[in-house]
């Protein structure tokens, strides 16, 4: 236990800001996962690998001399088609089966993409430089990398755009209809096959955006996808499916919680603290549910 953060309250500002900026990014990845989970009932274990793949697209642009920040435009376009093709070749065979099969299938995809990325880009840890500089507040005592602020803003823009798209567009309505009741949607003339392919594509595109933001804020490595999968899984578990504001809130909350846990409990307990929180929330939920008779079986 360390109480440095209480002795120097300015660290609380720093920790909260770091947590929020981190959480928004995680929330974007989690939103993709929630969407896909809700619509297709698939838990995508390869989520993190899609993120890293998107990151490598930005890194590839960076090595070609293009500013990597443009990755947030290019990467989702390429990733959409990668997601779409993954659906058409593999996922469409497992989407109607039980969840266990789809977990196995996406686990396979995750191993395959890790090895492919290793083969194509090598096993080195790489970074793309944005050279965005730093925002300094309170006389240098709170320093925020502009790259992180940029990534938080981009995440928010994409999330808002997606919500509007889901509400207003024809495909968005079809996706929501399918998620509510797949059979009914089919009877009413929704091409669910097309909806599934688009959903998988949209999820991959969101991962692409997040990946290119990670390329300029953190580091890339073919095998570093798992933390993103786990984190988004947890955010979705806490927020529930199909509830975007909750996803955003739980993403940010988790980010801030993690930073504070780092200061108070120590860095080594940071991730343990997050898992502990998950357990507490699940137990609390169960307790709440058991008080409502209609949920009891």
């Amino acid at each position: 236990m360390d109480f440095l953060i209480f002795k120097a309250p300015i660290l609380m500002v720093q920790a909260s800001m770091d947590g929020i900026l981190l959480g928004v990014l995680f929330a974007l990845v989690a939103y993709g996962m929630a969407l896909q989970w809700g619509v297709m009932n698939i838990i995508n274990i390869a989520q993190g690998e899609l993120v890293i793949m998107g990151g490598y697209i930005a890194y590839f642009m960076y090595t070609a001399g293009i500013p990597p920040a443009f990755g947030v435009i290019v990467s989702p376009i390429i990733m959409y088609f990668i997601g779409w093709s993954l659906y058409k070749t593999i996922i469409n065979r497992v989407v109607e089966r039980d969840m266990f099969i789809s977990i196995l299938a996406t686990f396979g995809i995750s191993i395959l993409t890790q090895q492919l990325m290793n083969f194509v880009f090598g096993a080195d840890v790489v970074v793309a430089q944005s050279n965005f500089g730093t925002t300094m507040l309170f006389d240098y005592s709170v320093t925020l990398p502009n790259a992180k602020i940029f990534s938080a803003l981009v995440s928010i823009v994409f999330a808002v755009a997606l919500v509007l798209y889901m509400k207003k567009s024809k495909l968005g309505r079809a996706i929501r209809a399918t998620s509510q009741n797949q059979r009914a949607a089919k009877i009413l003339g929704v091409d669910t096959e097309k909806v599934y392919a688009a959903t998988f594509g949209i999820n991959a595109a969101l991962c692409g955006v997040a990946g290119s933001l990670i390329a300029i804020t953190f580091t890339l490595h073919p095998y570093i996808g798992l933390p993103y999968t786990v984190r988004s899984f947890m955010i979705v578990i806490i927020a529930g499916l199909g509830n975007l504001p909750a996803v955003a809130l739980s993403g940010i909350g988790l980010g801030v919680f993690e930073e504070f846990a780092d200061y108070i409990l120590g860095t080594e307990f940071r991730i343990a603290a997050v898992f502990l929180l998950l357990v507490v929330i699940l137990v609390y939920r169960r307790f709440k549910l058991s008080r409502k008779r209609e949920y009891l079986k």
Partner: peptide, 13 residues
């Protein structure tokens, strides 16, 4: 500080 293996953010440290 002991950094977990999955950690790629050292902001707190």
């Amino acid at each position: 500080d002991n950094l977990p293996k999955e950690l790629n953010d050292m902001a707190a440290t």
